[in-house]
Design a protein around this nucleic acid. Structure first.
Lengths: 247, 247
DNA sequence: CGTTAGTTTGACCTGTATCAAAGCAGGTGG
DNA sequence: CCACCTGCTTTGATACAGGTCAAACTAACG
């Protein structure tokens, strides 16, 4: 019915606006920031690093030199692979997301790009936030802290999803969540968003089989809760979709 | 077959040794610490706070005054409760564990004691670690960092468990994990440990139904991988149990 | 065009949930 | 000391969500 359309939805990702635009937008959404503060953020960020799709993001061999990094564009995933090939996508990373040392480099885990990705080094930013606790920088630190909390909250939510929600509820909730996250950094409009994920990736994230994910998506489509169009996913009735999240 | 025996296994919990003994043991297991360093840790810890079983650990109403806390004795759980009553125990907390602000106080989550629990305030310790970066305190900071990493790693592992392991694998892995954790702080011997959890709690943690947990436990017992005795659980063949963790 | 990666379909199987009831142990109060 | 609760575990019967296997279908791409 939507026939391989999903994979095509990744954007050209090159843009006139600064590399960190989605991140700045996200940050502002966590605490209101002045233009000066945003400029300061921009200064602190390191040079961008580009990865092709399906590559591993490894930041230094030693555990020591793992620096925090921001996803500037594209989609990536923190993935666990079991010996027998079963995979679990622990966390999806999208533009504006923080990738902290704490998260990756656990043995058995890897961070892989799902689309082409650019990252920027955030250790400068972290250092700046640690040093400068001046009152006018307070909102910055606050936004940063809230973003980290959000990362954590998502992990916990993922546990609840996998532990207690049905396939249908899980899928609906993931869509709602991805939409909210992409809205924060201006990558989604009110009813649509990019979704550059294959059904296999969705399955690996939702703890389901590919076949079942396919059937759940069909059900959601039949009910008019999601529509695939032009490589994007459209959520025509967000409230009803949010309803589908609960039993 | 073991008939309500599990619940009885919580220890008297009053002890001549200092309140923070399990925590110190755990910390040393993450980085070798001198007696002086351990003494310093002890000084930094706040006064103990006691909770009865089945109580909520809430640390201040405002998000601001959430201090990091250590579990000095007893078992607690970070729990999510859905509107319709479904529950998911996100994380089990045992003696020596760190309970960070980041973890609790997400909306919909609560931290509840499963047995009688004593906690100690760790904000002093954190402050000390932040201020004193003297070289001789380096091991302390390192141990602390590793403990935090372990907390994080467990959360990620829990996602993999729920997403990709069978009920049988999940259960076996939990036992192995709990044993390793309790060994670290000297609460378990080589083949046995306290397990003050009802099958319902296990179910809520493993994302299963009570009935199914019961059947899995029976299977593990039949296979001689676990034995319940005198309110403790015995793991007679740890290697084989670890094997049961994988498919 | 053939190849390849992704989606869709159907048939079938199984792990796990649900429901209901019974068994067991410990605590309580008469 | 017994009888009764109450909370926990165990058992059996049954239902269903979701997995597995296999094959067809579609679209993109070189």
């Amino acid at each position: 019915m939507f026939h391989k359309a999903m994979t095509v939805s990744s954007l050209p990702e090159s843009r006139a606006a600064g590399r960190s635009a989605p991140f700045e937008a996200a940050m502002t959404s966590y605490a209101p920031l002045s233009l000066e503060q945003l400029a300061l953020v921009r200064e602190c960020l390191g040079a961008p690093h580009a990865y092709p799709a399906d590559a591993e993001i490894s930041r230094g061999e030693n555990v020591g030199d793992h620096r925090p990094v921001l996803i500037a564009s594209g989609w990536a995933a923190v993935t666990a692979t079991l010996e027998d090939g079963r995979r679990q996508i622990i966390s999806l990373l999208i533009a504006g997301d923080i990738l902290e040392p704490l998260l990756d480099r656990q043995p058995g885990l890897s961070v892989t790009t799902l689309t082409a990705v650019t990252t920027v080094d955030a250790s400068g930013l972290v250092g700046m936030l640690r040093d400068r606790l001046a009152s006018d920088m307070r909102p910055l630190a606050e936004a940063w802290a809230r973003m980290r909390q959000a990362v954590q909250a998502r992990l916990l939510r993922q546990i609840v999803r996998l532990g207690r929600l049905s396939a249908y509820e899980r899928t609906a909730e993931l869509m709602v969540d991805l939409h909210a996250r992409q809205r924060r950094c201006g990558l989604a409009d009110e009813h649509g968003m990019p979704l550059p994920l294959t059904q296999e990736m969705l399955a690996d994230h939702l703890g389901l089989s590919v076949v079942h994910v396919n059937r759940i998506l069909q059900q959601l489509r039949r009910e008019g809760l999601i529509v695939f169009r032009a490589g994007r996913i459209v959520l025509p009735d967000l409230p009803k979709l949010a309803q589908a999240t609960r039993r």
